[in-house]
């Protein structure tokens, strides 16, 4: 295949959706798996209100993280991206579209993501 000769020897981008009822609301998850990383969107309505990126660095035990879009005072997208990058060793993009006041919800959301990663590692 000429695609492989061109250095295109990577898997096709794969999209995976799942959802979970957490604290009386349905939370949707949308994952796009790419070559060496993934994009994860979390929310209960279909908006894209922020975007954080994180990846590991050999100079620091904690992955580097940066907010690319959205309100800089919101730490949820950054910290989620950072923790997922640490867990997966991949480049991680996160868009977190849930109320940030509820830290318990954020923890439950993170647990749900990690559960999905455990059950379906092929999607991340």
């Amino acid at each position: 295949m000429s695609g492989a000769q061109q250095g295109g020897a990577f898997d096709a981008i794969a999209v995976h959706n799942f959802c979970e009822k957490i604290s009386e609301q349905v939370i949707h998850f949308h994952v796009m798996k790419m070559n060496g990383g993934f994009f994860l969107w979390v929310g209960s309505s279909p908006t894209l209100s922020n975007l954080a990126v994180s990846m590991n660095s050999k100079f620091d035990a904690m992955p580097l993280s940066m907010l690319l879009m959205g309100d800089k005072s919101e730490t949820a997208p950054n910290s989620l991206a950072q923790r997922l990058a640490k867990k997966t060793k991949k480049q991680v993009f996160v868009s977190y579209n849930l109320p940030v006041v509820n830290t318990n919800l954020a923890l439950q959301v993170e647990d749900r993501i990690k559960k999905e990663m455990g059950n379906h590692p092929e999607h991340f």
């Binding site: 061109q6 295109g8 990577f10 796009m32 790419m34 908006t47 894209l48």
Partner: peptide, 23 residues
């Protein structure tokens, strides 16, 4: 080899257009 993924959000259209398999 060129891949496209288009995703619709209410306030954005997100398009990944890639020849490397990444963003």
């Amino acid at each position: 080899r060129t891949q496209v993924v288009c995703t619709e959000f209410s306030n954005y259209i997100f398009i990944v257009l890639t020849q490397y398999g990444k963003i």
